[in-house]
């Protein structure tokens, strides 16, 4: 059975979340210092985490 075509919201939901996290991390890393650096760096690295997840799925 052919899968139903996805809507734009379905297609861009996860990319938008990853992009939002990444951009928030980039800006927050400029504004705050200290232990929060780790959290902001991980937010910037959201794309890397998703790529690792996709590689583990295959």
């Amino acid at each position: 059975m052919t899968p139903q075509p996805k809507t734009l919201v379905q297609i861009f939901k996860w990319p938008a979340i990853v992009t939002g996290l990444s951009l928030a991390g980039l800006v927050l890393a400029l504004l705050i210092e200290g232990p929060a650096d780790i959290a902001t760096a991980l937010a910037v690295g959201a794309p890397v985490i998703v790529i690792a997840w996709a590689l583990l799925q295959k």
Binding site: A29, L30, D37, I38, T40, A41, L42, V44, G45
Partner: peptide, 13 residues
């Protein structure tokens, strides 16, 4: 600007 972890992530990207 955000420490070594950010630099490592920058390099991966």
């Amino acid at each position: 600007y955000g420490g070594l972890l950010l630099k490592l992530i920058w390099a991966l990207l």
